[in-house]
Design a protein around this nucleic acid. Structure first.
Length: 301
DNA sequence: CACCAGGGTACCT
DNA sequence: AGGTACCATGGT
C-alpha cells in the first residue's frame, strides 16, 4: 500500500481502540495489517493504537480532523465517567475487564439504519448486511493507491429510491420494508434527524419510535450512539442477561420495573455503564472465545 | 440438527 | 395491559 497523504497522532489515554470498534456500536471497522480500517462520514481512514494515543492516516490531505475527533470522542475524560458508575461487583468487574472502552458519536442516519438492520441478528451478520448495503449503494470514496474500493454508508435519499426487493438482496430479510420506509421518511423530511439534537431525550425517543421497525431498544441505541444521550440504556438480550443474572437473580422484574431500575440505579452515564456490561458479557465471561469477537476478517463478498 | 442472534409488529386474550 | 407467533438469515 502506498503512503498516506496525511497522518496525525491524537494524544489520548484510557482508550481501548479494539474494544471500542468491536463492541457492537459501529459495524464497519476491519482490522487489517495492524490497522483498523473504516469510514467516518465520507472519509476513509485507518487507525492504530499507540502507547500515547491513536495514530490516523487518510488518503487525502485534511484541513482539520474534527470529523474524526468528534467521532472518536477523544476529548472525553473517561475516568470522570467511570467514577459515576455504581460501585458494585458487576460494574467493578466490567471496568476491570474493559477499561478504555469508549462510546463513539456516530452519524444519526447511519446509526439509525444500521440498528434497524440489527434486530435478532448477530453482530457478525449485521456487519455483513451493512457491508453489502454500502457496496451496492454507497458513494465511492478515495482510498490509498492499490486499496480495494471503499464506499460511504448510503444516504437516505439513495436508499429511498431503491425497492424492497433490491434491499432484500442485501440479506436483510424482513427488515427490508422497515429500512425502506425509514429512508423514505428521512429523505422526504417527514422526520428531521438533525432536529432531534435539540430535543430532550424522551421527546427524541418518542419521535424515533414513530419510525417503522424502531422500538424502544433500537431508539435507545440511536440516542446513545449517535445523539450522545448518555442516559439512554438499550436493553438487548445480552444486557438483559446481565441484569437478570447480576442484579435480579431471584425474580424477573417487569419491563417497567426494569426501566425504572436502570434509569435510576446506573446514574447520569447509564448508557456508558450499559456498554461496559454489554461488552463484558459478550467477551470476558467464561466460555466466550475472545478471538471470535475481535476477528473481523469475514466480510461481505 | 436445534437453538440463538444488540427486536418489532400484529394479533390475540 | 399482557402474552405470543411470526418475520429472514446465518452462526454456533
Amino acid at each position: 500500500m502506498s503512503a498516506p497523504a496525511d497522518q496525525i497522532l491524537v494524544p489520548v489515554h484510557d482508550y481501548d481502540l479494539a474494544a471500542t470498534l468491536t463492541s457492537g456500536q459501529a459495524f464497519r471497522w476491519q482490522l487489517r495489517d495492524g490497522w483498523w480500517e473504516g469510514v467516518i462520514g465520507e472519509h476513509w481512514v485507518r487507525l492504530q493504537q499507540r502507547d500515547h494515543g491513536i495514530a490516523a492516516e487518510t488518503p487525502t490531505k485534511q484541513r482539520d480532523w474534527s470529523w474524526m475527533l468528534h467521532y472518536l470522542q477523544t476529548d472525553l475524560d473517561l475516568n470522570t465517567v467511570l467514577l459515576t458508575f455504581p460501585q458494585d461487583e458487576p460494574m467493578r468487574a466490567s471496568i476491570e475487564a474493559c477499561r478504555g472502552l469508549r462510546l463513539l458519536q456516530q452519524d444519526p442516519w447511519e446509526c439509525l439504519a444500521s440498528f434497524i438492520l440489527s434486530s435478532t441478528k448477530q453482530i457478525v451478520q449485521i456487519r455483513q448486511i451493512v457491508g453489502l448495503l454500502c457496496e451496492r449503494y454507497g458513494k465511492l470514496l478515495p482510498t490509498m493507491a492499490s486499496h480495494e474500493p471503499v464506499h460511504a454508508f448510503p444516504s437516505a435519499e439513495r436508499l429511498a429510491s431503491t425497492s424492497e426487493a433490491e434491499l432484500r438482496e442485501c440479506k436483510m430479510g424482513f427488515r427490508a420494508p422497515y429500512l425502506l420506509a425509514a429512508a423514505q421518511q428521512v429523505a422526504s423530511r417527514e422526520i428531521d434527524l438533525l432536529s432531534l439534537f435539540s430535543c430532550d431525550v424522551d421527546a427524541a425517543r418518542d419521535r424515533l419510535m414513530e419510525l417503522p421497525g424502531v422500538g424502544n431498544k433500537i431508539a435507545n441505541c440511536v440516542l446513545l450512539f449517535a445523539y450522545g444521550f448518555q442516559q439512554a440504556f438499550p436493553v438487548d438480550v445480552w444486557v438483559m442477561k446481565a441484569l437478570r443474572e447480576l442484579y435480579f437473580p431471584k425474580r424477573q422484574p417487569s419491563p417497567e420495573r426494569l426501566g425504572r431500575f436502570v434509569s435510576t440505579y446506573f446514574g447520569t452515564n447509564a448508557g456508558y455503564a450499559q456498554q461496559y456490561l454489554f461488552h463484558y458479557m459478550r467477551t470476558k465471561r467464561p466460555g466466550i472465545p475472545t478471538a471470535s469477537i475481535i476477528d473481523t476478517s469475514r466480510e461481505a463478498r
